[in-house]
Amino acid sequence: MQIKKILNEKEIRDIEKLIEKNYGCKINLGKYKVFKTGEEKIWIVEKGVDMELCKKLRCYAMGMYFGKLKRNNKIKLSMEGAMMIGKIAKKNVAVIDEGEGMKFIEGENVIASKLIGCEQNNFVIIKMNEDILGVGILRENFIENLVPKARRINF
């Protein structure tokens, strides 16, 4: 793993603001060390980790992949990033029913039963009952599935 940058407090706050802008909720990333790898990927790791020591080791990965910064102030959350935010998100949330939920898990595009403050062509958090299933992109008539292949399940 090649760490491109360990984010300082201001840069972490900028990401928190980006999340607030996109999902209408406040989260505290300051309790983690936050760093960037290639392609603007954002990772979070326990604050006590000695990053200098880690640089001397053959490190394959560190902490949890949170999401990827995209153009136009958008962020593509990982499934776990979406789970962290999904329960308190107030916008860009697409609610789907159980039938669509099973399709979503299989990797198919789906149709939402309710859209909460969703913006066209932005990343939306997919919610089914109280569970956060991941993220997709809201297109004109459907939600484009972004579940990684390794996480999909064929029922």
């Binding site: 790791v45 080791l57 053959r58 490190c59 394959y60 990965a61 560190m62 902490g63 949890m64």
Partner: peptide, 9 residues
């Protein structure tokens, strides 16, 4: 959802 792990090789 683990954040306190460093994977070494």
């Amino acid at each position: 959802g683990v954040v306190n792990c460093i994977i070494l090789n």
